[in-house]
Simulated assay, not measured.
Amino acid sequence: MPHSSFFAAPLALLCLCAPLASAAPQDLNQVRGAVADWLDAQLAPTPNASYQLGEIDRRLRLEACQQLDLQLPQGYRLAGKTMVRVRCVAGARWAINHPVTIAINATYYVAARPLAAGHTLQAGDLATQQGDLAQLPGSVILDPAHAIGRVLNSPVAQGGPLRSELLRAGMVIRQNQRVRLIFRSEGLEVSNEGIALNAAAVGETVRVRVGNQQIISGLARQDGMVDAGP
C-alpha cells in the first residue's frame, strides 16, 4: 500500500496497524508460508487431508519477528473452517489468527436400511459413504468393528450416519442364564457353573449364584463366560 494512501485511511483502519518502526515490517508471506509448513506437518498422518489458506489482512503492519510459534487456538480443531494461531515469541510481541479451511475425505458408515431402536447391528446393516469429515459429527463411525454387535439406542433412517453415541454394547449374558465362571490364581485356572442374576455387556459386572447360597461377582466376557478373579 503506498505511503500516502496509508495516512489517508479512515481511523477504523488505522487501529489494525501496529506503530511503524524503523526496522522493516514482518513479511506476511513468510507468516503464510510458516502456516503452510505447520499444516503440512500436522496433517501428514491423516490420509486424504487437504487445506486452503485464507487471506491475512494486508493492512496489518507487524514488527519483524525472529521466531514464530504456531498452534490451534483453544476450541478449534484441524477440520473445516478453522484458525491457526501465529505468535511472535522472539524479536517482537504480536499474535494473529490465520484462517484456513481443512477437508478430510474419508469412508464412514451409514444405515443400509431403516434401523429400529434396540436393534443389534450386523454387517448387512451398514453401508459405506464418502464425505468430508469436517462436515460430519466427530463421533461418526469410521471402523465397522466399532458398530457390529452393538445395540442402537435410537432409530436411524436409511442413509443416516452411524455415531458412537447412538450405540451401546450388546448383552452377552442374560439374566437367569447358566454361565461358566473362570477363576485364575497363580497360574491355575478353575471353572464352575452358576446362574447369572443380571444381564451384562462385555466388561460389565455380573453377579452369579453358585449352588444355593454363594454369590460371586465377575466381569462378563465376549464368549459369555465370567472372569471371577483375582
Rank of each mutant, 00 (worst) to 15 (best):
W94P: 15
P73L: 05
Q52I: 01
L142Q: 10
Y108A: 04
V206T: 14
A201M: 06
R113F: 01
A23T: 09
G194N: 01
P2S: 15
N153W: 00
R93K: 09
V179L: 08
D132K: 05
H3I: 13
S22I: 04
E193P: 00
Q71V: 01
I56T: 14
I216Q: 14
Q30A: 13
C15D: 11
G187S: 03
L121V: 04
E63H: 06
E193Y: 13
Q66E: 15
E55K: 10
I215A: 04
P47F: 03
P230Q: 13
L14K: 14
R174C: 01
Q122D: 03
A34R: 10
N97H: 11
P47H: 04
R168G: 11
R59F: 13
G149L: 12
L13R: 09
L11M: 05
S50R: 13
A21Y: 02
M1R: 09
V110L: 05
Q213W: 09
I148A: 06
H98F: 15
L162R: 01
Q158A: 14
G138V: 09
E186Y: 06
I56Q: 12
D125C: 04
L126F: 07
V210N: 06
I215V: 15
V208S: 07
R32Y: 01
V156E: 02
L28C: 07
Q122C: 02
M225Q: 14
Q52D: 08
A64Y: 03
E189W: 00
E186G: 06
M171D: 15
L60S: 07
L197V: 04
L43H: 04
G138H: 11
N48S: 12
L166M: 14
R163N: 05
A36N: 00
S217V: 09
N212G: 07
D27F: 01
G149Y: 10
H3W: 10
D223G: 10
T101N: 11
W94D: 14
V206Y: 13
A103V: 13
A95H: 12
G124L: 02
L133Y: 07
L166W: 04
S185F: 09
L70G: 09
L115F: 07
D27Y: 04
A34T: 05
G138P: 09
R207G: 09
Q67V: 07
C88F: 11
A112H: 00
A44Q: 15
Y108G: 04
E189L: 07
G218E: 09
V156Q: 08
A117C: 03
Y109Q: 00
P155S: 03
E63D: 11
V190C: 00
V210Q: 14
I182N: 08
S185M: 05
I148F: 05
R178W: 02
N212K: 14
S164W: 02
Q175M: 05
R178T: 13
K81H: 10
A169C: 03
A49W: 06
Q135W: 03
I104C: 09
R184G: 02
Q30I: 02
P137Q: 08
P230N: 12
L197I: 03
L20D: 12
L68Y: 15
A200N: 11
G124F: 00
Q42M: 11
P161M: 00
Q74H: 03
I56E: 02
Q66V: 01
T128L: 01
R61F: 08
D69I: 00
V35K: 07
A49C: 10
G33N: 13
S185P: 00
G170K: 07
P114V: 03
Q66H: 10
A92Y: 06
T120C: 06
D223I: 10
T107W: 01
L20W: 11
